[in-house]
Simulated scan of single mutants.
Amino acid sequence: MTAIIDGDAVASDVRDGLGDAIDALADAGQTPALATVLMSDDPASETYVSMKQDDCEEVGIEAIDIEIDPDAPAAELYDTIDDLNADDDVNGILVQMPVPDHVDDREVLRRIDPEKDVDGFHPENVGRLVAGNARYKPCTPHGIQKLLAHAGVETEGADAVVVGRSDIVGKPMANLLMQKAAGGNATVTVCHSRTEDLAAKTRGADIVIAAAGVPEMIDGSMLAEGATVIDVGVNRVDADNDKGYELVGDVDFESAREVAGAITPVPGGVGPMTRAMLLYNTVKATSRQTGVEVTLP
C-alpha cells in the first residue's frame, strides 16, 4: 500500500510544537511579530497573505498587515522595508511575491535585514545555507525535510532527483539534501527544462521532488517501484465543476500512487508545511534577536 504523506497533520504537529517556544518567549516579555507586506491586487497573493496571518494568530504570533498600492513608486516599498528593519518590535518580514514589474524583486530581497528574513532569500542567508550554516532554511525545502523525516524516509545514501531549479525550492532543496547533516547526505541530481530524458533520471531515484510548475508532468511510468514522491506543484487546470478549475500537482497522482512507496497529495501535502515553517522561522528569529533561548520542534 502506498503511504499518503499528510502535510496537514505534520504541519499541525509543527504548530503545536511551537507552543512551548512561544510560551517561553511570552514569559520573557516577548511576543513574536511577523510583518507581511503585500504590493499586489492578485487574488492568489491576497489569499496567501491572509492564510499566513491566520496561521500567526492561531499560534500566538502577532501578524502585522501592510498593503501598498501596486501602482505606488518602488521607493514606497523600499522605505516600508527600511522602517520594518528599524522596528525592534518586528521580528520577521515577508514581502509577498511577485511584486509589480516596476519594482526590482532582487532589491526587495537585498533590502530586508538578514536577521528578519524569515523566507531565507537574502543573499547572505542563501550563502549561509550553501556553506552549511543556515540562519533560516527556506520554508518549502525545510518543510519537505520535515515531511521526509515524518514518513521515515532515509535520505542518507539515497539517490534523490529534484525536478526544478528555482531559487525558492529547487536550488535550496538540492543543497539541503546533499549537505552533511541530518536530512541530507543524499546523492542529488537536479533536472530542469533542458534535461534530456527526464524519465531516465527519475526512474533511478529513491526520492523524487517535483517542483517545476508543470501540471502532472511526472507519471507512474517515470518512477521506480517504492520511490518516495514529494509534489511541490500547485497548478490550476480547467475542470468540469462549479469553479471551472481544479488544483493539480506536478505529479499525476493516480498513476504515481500505483508505483510509489509514499507520496504527498495536492492539496494537503507540501503547502501546509511551507506555512508552518514560516511560523517556525519567525519564532527562531525572535529567539535570536531577543537572546531568549527556546526549543524548536
Rank of each mutant, 00 (worst) to 15 (best):
T228G: 02
L109F: 08
H142W: 11
T140Y: 07
A149V: 07
V14L: 13
L247K: 07
V237C: 09
A26L: 05
G157E: 09
G184T: 12
A63L: 09
D250I: 05
M1W: 04
D159Y: 09
P138M: 04
P100R: 08
L129C: 05
I81M: 07
P114C: 04
K52V: 05
A186C: 03
G60Y: 09
R257G: 00
V10C: 05
H192A: 05
G170V: 04
D167N: 15
V229Q: 02
A21E: 10
G268K: 11
A227Y: 07
G164R: 04
N185C: 10
N185A: 08
A26Q: 12
H150A: 14
R110K: 13
G233W: 06
V208I: 13
A160N: 11
D8T: 13
S255P: 04
Q53Y: 03
D197T: 11
S193A: 13
D82C: 05
V259Y: 02
R15F: 11
M217P: 01
R194W: 02
A75S: 15
K180A: 14
V108S: 00
H122W: 01
A86R: 13
V237P: 08
A224Y: 03
V95Y: 06
N185K: 12
A86P: 03
P43K: 09
P73W: 12
L198V: 02
I68D: 01
N125D: 06
A256D: 04
A182G: 13
R110M: 03
D105K: 10
V208C: 00
V161P: 00
Q179G: 01
T155L: 00
E62A: 13
E62Q: 12
I93F: 05
N235G: 07
